[in-house]
Each structure stands twice: as C-alpha cells, then as structure tokens.
Amino acid sequence: MIRVLTPHRQPDRQLVASGLLLLGAFAVPGIMILVGQGDPAFNRVDTWWQAYSFTLHTTFWDGVNGVLNWVGYVGMLSCHAVLALVLLIWNRPRTAAFVTVSGVVALALTQLAKAVVGRARPEGAKVLTDTGSYPSGHVSATTALLLVLAFLVGRWWMSSLAALGVIAMMISRTYLSAHWLSDVLGGACLAAAVVILMWWRFRDACIQENMNAGTTTIWAARASRRRRAGEQAQ
C-alpha cells in the first residue's frame, strides 16, 4: 500500500508547550478587548492595517476574495466532514475521531469566544457577517483543517501549503473588512492550539492505526472478520 499519510511522533513537551502558548496568544488579546471595552492597546495597529487594506481594492481581488469568503468557512467545514468520512472508509476510525473532535472543538470555542468578547466588526464590510468579530471564524476553520492535514500527511510541502493557506485567509478577511487584524491572528492561534493539543492526545493512536491500516475499508474488514468467525463456528 502506498501510504498517503505519514504522521510523525513529536515530543510531548513540544506539543503541550506550543498548544498552551498559542492559547495564551489567543486569550490575552481577548481579555484586553473586554477590559478596554473594544479599544485595546493594539487598536492602532488594527486601524492602520484596515486603512492599508482599503488601498489594495480592485475588481479582480474583490472577486478572488469573494470566493475565499465561501471557501474559508462553508468549504472548510465541509472538507473537514468529508476528511473524517474518508478516514473511516480507509479503516482509520481513531484518526477520524481526531479530525472530528479537532474541528468541533475549534468551531465551538470560536463561537463561544465571539459571544463572550462581543467585539464590533470593522465598518464597510464587503460580505455579509454575523455578530462578534473576535476571533475570526473563517481563519479558525481554515487553520483547523489545514493543520490537521499537516499533522496527518507529515510532509514539508503540506506544512508549507497549510501556512500559505492560513496567511491567505487572514489577508482575505481583513481585505473584505470583515475582521480586524487581531481577529484573524486570534482565530489562527485558537484553532492551532486546539489541533495541537488534540494531536497530543490522539497522536500515538493515529500513528499506530496508520501503520496497521490495510487496503480494505473498515466495513470490508468487519465483514471479513464476521465471515472468519462464522467459518470457525462451523
């Protein structure tokens, strides 16, 4: 079998430390926004970046970012669900659980943070937006899926594509005036922290499962075991 997935075993300390640092990087700005009533110390950087983004607007980039607006949320959540289903078919139920739990937890915490922080979005958004600007749901969903793929594929090119994809989505959300710069950074940090900590818990099971996986689907494997059990009983 040609293995598409080649996950690696990173040190526990490295994963836990990275996950906690990213959680802190997400939580601190959120607390500052709450304490500062929407006008934290980094607001000047947010407004400068927003003003700069307006200078980049063209018809072409409006179209590109309109596509990214759909891809970054509905598209990413759909791909997350499809990935979990494909892993089940590939006889990797624990890896599918890692994918599912990572996506659900990242989505739930993002929506919870939006409601708690209650930050107002920038004015003049080019797309429809819901309430709550911090953190960015599009960036969170994109980061969650691409980082999951980076861990599972385990190759440098996937990690590079994941980084480029997250950066592109961060730029897109600020270009569309749907989020402040700190919102997209917060979304990336939150989702990355969730995926890294989930990988820490699921890593060994996923690696072992990938090593043991055959070419048959999980349903074919179960049917084969039932047939063998029936033959033995006879």
Rank of each mutant, 00 (worst) to 15 (best):
A108H: 00
L109Q: 01
T110F: 08
Q111K: 11
Q111C: 04
L112R: 02
A113V: 14
A113R: 04
K114T: 06
A115C: 01
V116N: 05
V116G: 03
V116D: 09
G118H: 08
R119P: 06
R119L: 09
R121Q: 11
E123C: 00
K126M: 15
V127W: 09
T129C: 12
T131E: 12
T131C: 04
S133P: 00
S133H: 02
Y134A: 05
S136W: 11
G137Y: 10
G137R: 08
A141I: 06
A141F: 09
A141T: 12
A141W: 11
T142K: 05
A144Y: 01
A144P: 04
L145Q: 07
L146I: 04
V148R: 01
L149K: 05
F151H: 00
L152E: 02
V153L: 14
G154Y: 03
W156V: 09
W157E: 01
M158T: 12
M158H: 01
S159N: 11
S159H: 06
L161S: 07
A162K: 05
L164Y: 12
A168W: 11
M169Q: 03
M169P: 07
M169W: 11
I171K: 00
R173C: 05
T174K: 02
Y175T: 06
L176C: 08
L176D: 10
S177R: 13
W180P: 00
W180K: 00
W180R: 00
S182T: 13
D183A: 00
D183R: 00
V184N: 03
G186M: 01
A188L: 06
A188F: 06
C189E: 06
A191M: 00
A192F: 01
V194C: 06
L197F: 07
M198K: 03
M198F: 11
W199I: 03
R201A: 14
R203Q: 15
R203E: 11
I207P: 10
E209S: 07
E209P: 07
N210E: 15
M211Y: 10
N212H: 14
A213S: 15
T216L: 15
T216E: 15
T217R: 09
I218E: 03
W219Y: 12
W219D: 14
A220K: 08
A220W: 12
A221T: 12
A223K: 11
S224D: 14
R225I: 10
R226Q: 12
R227A: 13
A229P: 01
A229L: 15
G230V: 02
Q232H: 11
